[in-house]
Design a protein around this nucleic acid. Sequence first.
DNA 1: TTTCAGGTTGAAC
DNA 2: GTTCAACCTGAA
Length: 296
Amino acid sequence: MKKIYKIDKNEITITDISEFDIEHILDCGQIFTYKRIGDDFIVYSDKDIAVVRKVDDFYKINTSNVEYFVNFFDLDTDYAKIKNEVKTILESNKFGVNIDEMYRRGGGIRILRQSFLETVIGFIISANNNISRIKKSMQYIRENLGTKTKFGDFEYFAFPCLESLAMQNETFFQNAGCGYRSASLVKTIKMLQGVDIDNLCSMSTQNLREYLLNFAGVGPKVVDCILLFCFSRTDVFPVDTWVKKIYKDLFGEESKENVMRQNLINKFSGVAGYAQQYLFYFKRVQSFEKKNIDNF
DNA sequence: TTTCAGGTTGAAC
DNA sequence: GTTCAACCTGAA
């Protein structure tokens, strides 16, 4: 695989954008800490910030931490190869997906490697919730507990550390708009104190999944999102309301949730997580288009 | 006024 | 082991 980026001081340049589209990456539901300002996309992760701007046929990423965001955007993984593998599986199963169209719409998706604490909290909040509210809650947590940080002309709040989060009671999270998820957050944050993250990385996907399911507010869907978007375990297939619709498209009818999940993992095995993202994004784009036509 | 939004939980079969 | 209603909240 040819390297798709160059580094110059605090700037990353994406030189090959055939498998990198910042809108696809941010809008496929894996992250809640970003915003758009004009044509720029500001991405916040943990203590760091990246300003992503498209310039002609490449991206310029100005960042407080180059090394962190090279890993965060998964820049050393060969997505062309992954897309081919997903394509092969879709074709050999005769799933009837318009693959060219799917990649035309969301072929620039990459699976982010996000920080553990922020991912766990973000996805506990995400349960039965919508993106705009999740983003507001995450922003509230940053603004009220995080350290004010400067990067060039930008001022932002870092994501707070575990100790700072552990001092908050349920009321704090209710004020953040987390609703009934607040109790889970307080419990899980307490449980996280003393957890050795390096140890978690060395666990098998199955063991790590079972372990993380012990945390409050972490069920089958949330745990798979944590496994995929934080630990890069691409042999999982998060099943949500959208995936249920997709499953019906692929297999003809819905089934019990864990049956659907297992069938999808059996089909896509090591590229399951990627397949989930491409299919998910495509389904959502199509759905939004249909809505707009209906409203017309 | 309902419904829905990228679900989890605990009680009741 | 499975099913199922309840759950904060606010935009559509």
